[in-house]
Design a protein around this nucleic acid. Structure first.
Lengths: 337, 337
DNA sequence: CTGAAAGCGCTAACAT
DNA sequence: ATGTTAGCGCTTTCAG
C-alpha cells in the first residue's frame, strides 16, 4: 500500500543511502554539519529517487514558509505590472515563492488575506494598495512584516519603498514653467493615496514658490475612464489650460488620447501633457509622453533587500526612497524656445 | 515558554471550548459530522482567540494544498495581465491560493518550478507558455495536473483552454477581403506557438479558398520592438500591403504606431490594420483597433471549472475552446462602401 | 457523534 | 559528525 501520493520521502532516501533520516535532512540544509562524502552519497540517492524536501513539512517545522505574499489592486496600470514581473523574477532568484492575492483598494476587508497570513509568510508586500488598519493589526499578531510598495504609511511597524514623489512632481512643475505655460492644471489620482498627496503637494508647492497661480484641479482617480472624463472637463473650460500634469502615466495617456482625438489638439504644441512613472508605453511614438521615471527595478531590488533583512530581524523596518529622473519627450512644449 | 510563534492552535481552542482537539478540526471541516451546537461553541471560542486552522499543517495532512501554480512568461501583453487579474479573482473566490512563478518561454528548464511542484498543487496553469517535456513529466510524477491556457498541447494527459483561433483568423480575413483589400499581409507572432500556427493557418486558408494571393509574411514575435521592425519592413516594400493582420493586439498597436507616426499613413483609410485579443487599449480612440475578441472572463471561468474538476479527478482532462467575436473599429476600412 | 491515538514529512534539540 | 527522540498543527481512522 502506497503512502499518500506515492511521494518520495526523506526516509526513502535514508534507506537508499544507508543513513539516518535526519542525515538526509541535514544534507539538504545549507549550513548543517555533515561530512562532505556522506552528503554526496545522500544527494546521489535523492537524485536517483527523484526526491525533494517537502516544502510544506519544512515550513511547518521551521515556522517560516519562504513565501512572500503580494497584494495587488488594479493591474490596469502598467507600472504595477512591470513591478510584479520584476518582483516575481527577483523573488524567484532568491528562492522565495510568491503568493498573489487580490487586495481591493481599502474597501471592505478581504477575508482571503486573513487566511493567507497564516502561511507564516516571510513578508507581505502591498503593491500600491493600503491595507486596512484591521489587517495591519492582524499582520502584527501573525508576526508577518508588511512592506508598502509605492505607498508611505504612518505606521511605525512597517517598511515602505517609494519613489521621491515630491522631487519628481517639482521637476515636472519646473519643466512646465520653463516651457512658458501659464494656465497649468493638475489631474489628481485617487485623493486618499499618499502618492497622489505627495505629487500634488510638490507640484502645487513649486508653482506657488515661483509665483504661478494654483493649478486647476480635476480628478482622474488613476483610472482610464475617469481620466478621460476629467480631461474633457478641463478642455471644455472657458479658460482652457495650456498644460496638464497627470499624477500618473495611465491618466496621461488617456488625456493625450482625448486631447488629440476628441479635441483635435496638437499635443506638445497647443497643449502640454506630462505624466508620472515612465511606463514602457510612454516611449511609444504614438504618445511620446514626458514623464518622471520611477526606477522600478531599483525599487524592486530594495524591496527584496527589505524582505531578506526582515527575515533575520522582523522588526528591522525601514523606509526606502528611490530617486527618479525626468524624461522629456514630445508631449510637452520644448523649453529652449 | 511560548510555542513557536505564539500562534493559536486547535488545542488552545479545544481547551477554551472544553472539547477535544479533533472536535475543533471537525468544526472547521465542512462535511464533518459534529453536533450543531458544539460546532457553534467551538467557532465562538475560535473567534475569541483569533484562531484559524494552519493551512500548512492542513495541506500536509490532506496531501493537497489548495494552491494553484500559475506560470507566466512576458507580462508585456495586456491580454495576459487581464487574464491574470481575472484568474486571481476567480481563484480567490473559490478559496484557492495562487502561487505565481516566472516560466521563461520554453528555453532552459527553470529550477524553481520543480520545487513549486512539491507543494502538492491542485493544478498548474501555464499562461501562454509551453512547459518543456521534462517539466511535463515531472508534473505527471508529482501528480500535478497541468492546464494550458491559450495554448493547445499534443499531450493527452493535460487540459487546455483556448480561443477558437482558426475561426477568429478567418473572420478577420473575411472582413479584410470584404473591405476590398488586395495586398494583404500577415504579421506572425512566435512561430512555434500553437496560437500563431492556428491563426496563420486560418487566415491563409480563408484567403486561399477565396482566390486571394497568399499573404505577405513578416514576423513580430509577439513583441513590441520586433513588431515595429517588422512593420517597417512591410511598409518599405515596393508593393506596400494595403492591409495587415497582426497575430495579436500588442503587435497591432505597435504596427499602428509605426504606420501613423513614422510613415504618416492614415490608418483605416490608406491602410487597414487588425489585431487579435481585443485588449482594453484596442478600444482607445488613439488606436480604435479592429480585433477579434477573446472572451477572457469566460476562458478564466472555464479554467476554474477545470481546476475544480481535476481536484476530484486528476485524470479528468479536457480541452475547452471558447468562441470569440469580431470587433470592427476604425483601424480597418469599412466594408459597406 | 465524539475522544484517543496515530501519523503527514520534516527539523531541531539531545545525546552520543 | 551522526543517530535517536520529540514534536510542528493538523486530519483521520478507530473505538465507543
Amino acid at each position: 500500500m502506497e503512502s499518500h501520493r506515492e511521494a518520495v520521502t526523506s526516509l526513502d532516501v535514508a534507506r537508499e543511502a544507508g543513513v539516518s533520516q535526519s542525515a538526509v535532512s541535514r544534507a539538504f540544509t545549507p549550513g548543517a554539519s555533515i561530512a562532505a562524502d556522506k552528503r554526496e552519497r545522500i544527494i546521489a540517492a535523492a537524485e536517483k529517487l527523484g526526491y525533494r524536501p517537502n516544502p510544506l513539512a519544512r515550513s511547518l517545522m521551521r515556522g517560516r514558509s519562504n513565501i512572500v505574499g503580494v497584494g495587488v489592486g488594479d493591474l490596469a496600470n502598467p507600472f504595477f505590472v512591470q513591478t510584479l514581473q520584476l518582483l516575481s523574477d527577483a523573488l524567484d532568484g532568491a528562492g522565495l515563492r510568491l503568493m498573489l492575492f487580490p487586495a481591493r483598494g481599502g474597501s471592505r476587508p478581504e477575508p482571503t488575506i486573513h487566511e493567507i497570513l497564516h502561511y507564516r509568510l516571510d513578508a507581505l508586500v502591498m503593491l500600491s494598495v493600503s491595507p486596512s488598519s484591521a489587517l495591519t493589526e492582524q499582520c502584527r499578531r501573525a508576526q508577518v512584516p508588511v512592506i508598502h510598495y509605492n505607498r508611505t504609511t504612518t505606521a511605525h511597524d512597517a517598511s515602505s519603498v517609494v519613489g521621491d514623489n515630491g522631487t519628481g512632481a517639482r521637476a515636472i512643475a519646473a519643466h512646465l514653467l520653463a516651457g512658458g505655460h501659464h494656465r497649468i492644471a493638475f489631474m489628481a489620482g485617487t485623493p486618499e493615496t499618499s502618492t497622489n498627496a505627495a505629487r500634488e503637494a510638490g507640484f502645487a508647492g513649486y508653482l506657488a514658490e515661483h509665483g504661478a497661480p494654483a493649478p486647476i484641479r480635476e480628478c482622474g482617480h488613476y483610472a482610464v475612464d475617469a481620466s478621460m472624463a476629467a480631461m474633457r472637463r478641463l478642455l471644455l473650460r472657458t479658460e482652457r489650460p495650456d498644460a496638464v500634469f497627470c499624477a500618473n502615466d495611465t491618466m496621461a495617456l488617456a488625456a493625450i488620447s482625448v486631447a488629440r482625438h476628441e479635441f483635435g489638439l496638437d499635443v506638445g504644441r497647443e497643449i502640454s501633457i506630462a505624466g508620472y512613472d515612465d511606463v514602457p508605453m510612454a516611449a511609444w511614438p504614438a504618445f511620446s509622453l514626458t514623464s518622471f521615471s520611477q526606477p522600478a527595478s531599483r525599487m524592486v531590488a530594495e524591496t527584496l533587500r527589505l524582505i531578506l533583512a526582515l527575515r533575520s530581524d522582523p522588526d528591522d523596518h525601514q523606509t526606502v526612497i528611490a530617486e527618479g529622473t525626468l524624461v522629456v519627450r514630445g508631449s510637452t512644449r520644448p523649453v529652449g524656445r
